[in-house]
Design a protein around this nucleic acid. Structure first.
Lengths: 188, 188, 188, 188
DNA sequence: TATGAATGAGTCTTCATTCAT
DNA sequence: CATGAATGAAGACTCATTCAT
């Protein structure tokens, strides 16, 4: 599963062959099929790996007492991955971009589910921050409701990862990460 | 070229066969090769199409007298594409995500070049707005220098497109588009 | 026709495309088809070129009074072509090698016909030399009858061309050419 | 490899499809690629087959005590192949003629290497015969040095094979083979 | 369970040949 | 008669998947 996650992230789904994954995992191709009946199951497995990593990361962040600090630490973690992001993009984001185009309904929203999981965790933090934005047509706290704030945060991450990747420039992560932290600090 | 741009956007590079493009263009496969010697040349052609569209769009926006209005109209245009974005993502962004992983140096930064073109145009608008942010370690106007602002804007677009796509939700474009416009208005 | 002869000699039949010939002749592809209905007709045309060249050469040699001198001058002409032979082999011989494998009966013996024409001319010279070899089971003059001598001469040419070509060594032509001339001189 | 050698000999390199070889070997096409990554590797394999056959043949001849007898037995072996030669030419010679025209440097001299191997073996036999030809400008024994004699012998074989093939006449092999044996006998 | 070979459908690419102008 | 584009039938090669051992 780790090999699948790594190679699929680095090469993309369609460009990765089962032989690539088998080689990375140092097992013969035939054996891969003993555990995963199709290539799609391997993609699924890679997504599970990403989910597990995400859970592990948010689990660690949850130990911080202040929700705002948790979110800022999350941004910190993203920035730390800047070199990988500049080379290969966000693992889940690029997977979502590739899988999302599928017309056959297989796995096409699975990467989205992982992102939604992150969204939910972030929304929980914003809720806990109990912000006092003005109410409006958009619901409680206007556009500053927890769900929208979470969306902005994660979209910010995906945007900066994609830009860093497209421009092959890790510095994009640093600059946009700083902006996200300032934004988190500015919320009241 | 239009057929290539459309189909490659909808299906991704690796999932698209030459036959798909030929069918969309309603020409026999062999004929495609009369004009494009390889599949990569078709991808390149698709990127040219996107560049042409971008130039045409910014050309139209340039007619607006106020640079801030131009940028807001740009965001407007993005939001109008929300249904396409939710289904297939940003044409250039998803292309960048897929091509950027190539290890063989072919086309891997070509989509990035298109994005950079957009970045440059946006930076020009911000420069024209002559903002008076405080100077700092990041140069004139601190993190509010035109290049960083352009980066934030385009990253915002890419982020919201990817999120709309991953979540299959056009509304993401509407909400994040509104946020971007508010942000543009807030700059002084 | 000249372009066909040249390119087919240099690249072989199967490796040569009509576009190659058209380019060499500096005419558009479509136009080639106005004069030659199929690729095979172009091969045939190339063989005609070779036949014409052969006729022209033997015609010139025929002006020499002594048949032995004609044959020696022929060998001389072969040796003069040593650089071309070392690079591309004998035009007719390599064509015969390639076409002779065809199973469909098209052109498969056409190159052989050109070689036979050379054989006939050579036999005529040997006959004129009126050699006095002993008669034997092989017919008049034993193995020294004109037809066999012609065969030995032309086989010698084909052998040295092929060896020069295979070894990429023009010097093979020089050495074997000298041997052939000594052999011609030795016949009585 | 045997199937490749056979079919490539009979049909030539360019006229042979992978499917042809697979059919002859009675394996599915895909499986051929498990062992040979490209068509060129199959050609290389066919050449290895020819080399192996050559080594096996000369190995057997080496058991004869007299070098002259070895060479005569070699000619004998060639003549025995007369029907194959008349239909398809010498396997290595025709391969050399076809491959030698390649301009891309792939395999273009590989067939020549096989021929050179035969040349070396023949030269060794002539050396062992310790001939006493007159010295001259061409080195020890004049044009009768072992290398030149070997060249003459192998060129003789290639010439007669090509002629037999071009004329579709196995008898050419018989007649020229007899001549080569007489020539070997005449050397002192 | 592990292994390496087998299988064949699918994809890119080439090119002889045709055709409209 | 010239031109450049159109056409589609192969052919090389890849790779997910299966299978025998």
């Amino acid at each position: 599963m780790a090999a699948a996650a790594k190679v699929l992230h680095e090469q993309g789904v369609e460009r990765t062959t089962l032989a690539d994954i088998a080689r990375e995992a140092d097992v013969p191709v035939g054996n891969v099929y003993y555990y995963f009946k199709t290539k799609d199951e391997l993609v699924q497995a890679a997504l599970s790996e990403h989910t597990a990593y995400l859970d592990e990361l948010t689990g660690r962040l949850d130990r911080l007492p202040d929700p705002r600090d948790r979110l800022k630490a999350l941004v910190e973690a993203w920035v730390e991955q800047r070199d990988v992001a500049a080379r290969y993009g966000c693992p889940t984001g690029t997977l979502a971009a590739e899988l999302g185009k599928r017309a056959d309904g297989t796995l096409d929203t699975e990467a989205g589910a992982v992102i939604r999981r992150l969204l939910d965790w972030a929304a929980r933090q914003f809720r806990e921050m109990a912000l006092s934005g003005p109410d409006g047509p958009d619901g409680p706290n206007g556009p500053d409701n927890p769900d929208d704030l979470a969306l902005t945060l994660v979209a910010g991450y995906q945007g900066m990862s994609l830009m860093a990747h497209a421009l092959r420039d890790p510095d994009v992560m640093t600059r946009e990460g700083a902006r996200l932290r300032r934004w988190l600090d500015s919320l009241q």
